[in-house]
């Protein structure tokens, strides 16, 4: 199948980017990234600079992919990362626009690679349980209801890819931040610090320059792990309690 690609090229964050047109001969069994590999092999053969894009595990879990395909982070398939998206979802002769995540808090490094360290700093602000190694009580000391554990798991399934903030017309990181607050807050081990966690993580999120959530839900729709906006409501509640409820 023939694919017409409109790929974003940008040397670094200080230069302006532009779209570049390429044609790639793909097969329907290729993953989207393998199609990009073919493009790069082509460019290398022509002694040109290959397109920089981030990828690693290629099995949908590391969260490195950061492409926007036809305006959608990770492309058109529901609950699927770019690396698991296959060319059979496209048609012969399609024109596909490939761009980097666009959000002020994710500056472009090169081409399709962006800097997502803001997410690390949000976690560093309080996305953990403050226990040192050693001295933990027995794993079965505190029973946790099966459904509660599952809810915490669903929030913890976040892969930190940043698609939520990239999809959000407001460039908001609420889904990412809230998933961590909900994951930890729903478990008794993490609930202990919830007040300070919610306060500090939201403050850091604001500091990083992410936008405000206006409940558009594009994050939920585009999240490759289908993290629910229920978590955002959870964070709103936790933050309100922390800010105006608790002494």
């Amino acid at each position: 199948m023939k694919i017409n690609l409109k790929v974003w090229r940008q040397k670094n964050n200080n230069t302006k980017g532009h779209f570049e047109n390429h044609t790639v001969e793909a097969t329907e069994h290729m993953s989207f990234l393998e199609m990009m590999d073919v493009l790069n092999e082509q460019l290398i053969q022509e002694k040109k600079d290959p397109v920089a894009f981030e990828h690693d595990c290629r099995e949908g879990i590391c969260g490195a992919c950061s492409m926007v395909i036809n305006g959608r982070p990770h492309g058109p398939q529901q609950g699927t990362t770019t690396c698991q998206l296959h060319m059979r979802k496209f048609n012969d002769g399609d024109t596909i626009a490939v761009e980097p995540y666009r959000a002020k808090a994710f500056p472009v490094v090169k081409d399709l690679v962006v800097d997502r360290s803001a997410f690390d700093r949000i976690i560093q602000a309080g996305g953990y349980v403050s226990v040192n190694t050693g001295g933990a009580p027995d794993g079965n000391a505190i029973p946790i209801e099966k459904d509660t554990a599952l809810e915490a798991f669903d929030a913890a399934a976040c892969i930190g890819c940043g698609a939520c903030a990239a999809a959000c017309p407001n460039g908001s990181a609420m889904l990412f931040t809230s998933a961590k607050v909900a994951h930890l807050g729903k478990l008794p081990q993490g609930e202990v610090e919830e007040t300070s966690r919610a306060r500090k993580m939201v403050a850091q999120m604001d500091k990083e320059g992410f936008g405000f959530c206006s409940n558009i839900r594009a994050c939920e729709v585009e999240c490759p792990k289908e993290i629910s906006v229920n978590n955002i409501a959870y964070l709103n509640r936790a933050f309100l309690t922390a800010s105006i409820g608790k002494e």
Binding site: K6, F19, V68, N70, G71, R72, A97, E99, R102, A103, K104, A105, A167, C168, P169, N170, G171, S172, G209, F210, G211, F212, S214, N215, I216, R217, A218, V221, E222
Partner: peptide
Amino acid sequence: KNKAAKGSKYAVAAKNDTSWASK
């Protein structure tokens, strides 16, 4: 604030399941 946080828009508008009003 949100406009600044978004930076620039995508070349292709996403066709996804979000309401027009919300955006």
